[in-house]
Nucleic acid binder design. Structure first.
Lengths: 242, 242
DNA sequence: AATTTTCATTTGTCAGACGTTTAAATGTCT
DNA sequence: AGACATTTAAACGTCTGACAAATGAAAATT
């Protein structure tokens, strides 16, 4: 593990890159302990503070974890699906809010992705997934449900649909997309939407899941997408009018 | 921006979280300058070293950028699609390599996602996208192409297909998935695969894109998925036999 | 007016110190 | 011998103070 003396980047960034490369390439394996900060500072010929800044960069990406005390140190972290979700959601949320992504584009992407798991969800869904969907649908029938509560339930419902596909890689990819975009859509459409209409579509999706009708799920998602897009257009007109 | 004195996490992690929350919530907007390290260390009542570790964590997530000199400092960074790609690819690659994801599952997820953009690609593809696809197909006909070259060209071809959907959010989501999984698949199947067979399927996909036949693209992707899965099974058997 | 010089500000890096945590090693008692 | 308490060394977490390097603004000079 060496750093390039001719690079003009910060030392801590260079060191972080060297260690990151070692992890990605497999030279450092999961749960392997890195040298102590003091040893690293000797190896790279920098101060301990600089090494620490490099390690914090890696920790921010969940590539390492640190443990204090004797026999502690920095260990290569097994990146879990859960941690990866979290990072994806943060990244996706910021990406959408900072890049003026149009409602139309976000909506299209979100439903295209979700439709991708419809056929799988139809064949693989378990009783658990169906129960989660039904529970969220029931929650959505409660008149006292706040807008935040509705939004959370909406996310949970779609999350259950995605998980029903029984493919963790797919779940990881889609959960990030759905969880980042659904709140955005709720924020835009919550004044105009009809809970009843969405609810009935959710119920249809759950029924199609139950009966294993993948095409039915896709069609219903299509309808949901269409309705959401219409709401988006309404809001855009309202905005222009005001 | 305050930190919780009762938390037992590292101070630098708490401070990073406080600033991250401020960015995500919109309290700090793009290109806004954060207080200097000295000012932050006063505000949070910690040393400058601790503040710096927090800032390095945020820099690792591309949430801020720093500039030296007078009137320099840390600025909220506009997260670009390109940066987000990079992070997604790193995360996805590590996730796959560290979690013993089966070839079958990865393959299923990859083609399910790619199929999602087939209908859009059929209607939106431009001459540019088609040209890229044809160029990669031509490259793949060259007998002297190395395995690495083939893999890179394969990724580029599928990337063009994804981009042809004309939805940057979709591109962002799928580019990460495809670029992380395609090399994995090539690594597993490169000894057994028939370049000719894959090439003919690529050509069919390009033709269907040209003629705007979304269903045709999906069917061909399906065939490609099937063939890839078969290769995966062959390799699994070989492994068992040895 | 244009150019050069100065200068204050801010990040990058370093050295050294001390506190805290942790698990292994050691000691002690039953 | 075994269970429990104590010691101890290793390692991270944090702080202080210092200096170097970059950088843009302001002042000085031509």
């Amino acid at each position: 593990m060496k750093i390039d003396p001719s690079s003009k980047a910060d030392l801590s960034a260079q060191i972080a890159k060297a260690i990151r490369d070692a992890i990605v390439s497999g030279a450092l394996i999961v749960d392997e302990r890195l040298p102590s900060e003091a040893e690293l500072s000797e190896q790279f010929e920098v101060s301990r503070a600089t090494v620490r800044e490099a390690l914090k960069r890696l920790a921010a990406q969940s590539l390492i974890r640190t443990q204090r005390g004797a026999f502690g140190g920095a260990f290569v972290n097994r990146l879990s699906f859960k941690e990866a979700y979290g990072q994806q959601i943060t990244t996706s949320t910021l990406l959408l809010s900072m890049n003026a992504v149009s409602f139309e584009i976000a909506c299209e992407a979100r439903f295209a992705l979700e439709s991708a798991c419809a056929p799988l969800a139809a064949t693989r869904r378990t009783a658990d997934h169906l129960a989660t969907m039904r529970a969220e649908i029931f929650r959505q029938t409660q008149p006292g449900l706040s807008d935040e509560g509705w939004c959370a339930s909406d996310v949970a419902f779609h999350r259950a649909l995605v998980d029903a596909a029984g493919n963790p890689v797919l779940s990881y990819q889609l959960a990030g997309a759905v969880e980042a975009m659904q709140p955005l859509m709720n924020m835009i459409t919550f004044t105009a939407r009809s809970r009843e209409k969405i609810l009935s579509l959710h119920a249809k999706i759950a029924d199609f899941c139950d009966s294993g009708d993948g095409a039915g799920i896709e069609e219903t998602l299509e309808a949901l997408a269409l309705y959401t897009r219409q709401l988006g257009q309404q809001m855009a007109q309202k905005k222009t009018a005001s």
